[in-house]
């Protein structure tokens, strides 16, 4: 009994490559859920983190919100919301967003707080407007840390989006849940491998974005 055997069995079964339960379909479904959840989380977490970080206010409130968000059990929330709202995408999205907002929020706040104050002082002294200071001085320097927060949020989402299958939706979690009920280890291991692979791909995407978007002066200077 070997994981590699399961992996091989799963991927070499041509039936797993076609149709509504084929790997491509489940793969794109999974990416779809993940991107949607990441987008909501970023829309909530980034602006709040950036503004609190820029003005240096509300750090304590932010820590409380982040702790509360982390404390809410993801799976419990999913089941509860499904009972209350019935089967739909909403009970899946809410726990994923609750899971992903704290790391984005806290890291973004920290990223802005850890920007060296002296270039900001120089920029203000040169007559830059506050919005220019934020966008042209602080954000470029804070970007690597902000990206790292988004990255860990994205990886947690990719891994956790498997719960969508529990409430009858698709995604790579299908293989794991179905494998559990059908006692098919092959499916479970195959699904887990795909999720881990997707997480690695997410890492690669963030690495590439970092190469492209972060100034060499920040990348190597810090």
């Amino acid at each position: 009994m070997n994981i590699l055997n399961f992996v091989h069995a799963f991927f070499s079964d041509s039936a797993h490559w076609h149709g509504y339960d084929g790997i491509p379909t489940r793969f794109w479904e999974h990416i779809g859920y993940s991107l949607e959840a990441l987008a909501y989380s970023a829309v909530i977490g980034l602006p709040i983190g950036v503004l609190t970080g820029h003005y240096g206010r509300g750090g304590n409130a932010l820590a409380l919100i982040a702790t509360a968000g982390r404390a809410l059990p993801t799976f419990g929330l999913l089941v509860l919301l499904t009972i209350l709202l019935g089967f739909s995408l909403v009970p899946v999205m809410v726990p994923l967003v609750v899971l992903a907002v704290p790391p984005i929020l806290v890291t973004t706040y920290e990223a802005l707080r850890s920007v060296d104050p002296s270039p900001v002082d120089a920029a203000r002294g040169m007559g830059m407007s506050e919005s220019r200071i934020l966008f042209q001085v602080e954000l470029p320097v804070a970007l690597p840390l902000i990206l790292s927060g988004l990255r860990s949020a994205a990886i947690q989402i990719v891994s956790t989006a498997t719960i969508a299958a529990y409430v009858g939706l698709g995604g790579l979690g299908r293989y794991i849940i179905d494998g559990l009920y059908q006692r098919s280890y092959e499916k479970v291991v195959g699904g887990a491998t795909l999720v881990a692979g997707l997480a690695l791909a997410t890492l690669a995407v963030f690495w590439a974005v970092g190469r492209f978007a972060v100034s060499p002066g920040v990348r190597r200077g810090a």
């Binding site: 990719v158 891994s159 794991i176 999720v195 997480a199």
Partner: peptide, 17 residues
Amino acid sequence: TVLYAVPSLAFFVFLID
């Protein structure tokens, strides 16, 4: 990081054996 990305449920199921 790879281990972290493996969904917990998959982990559980695998260990049942």
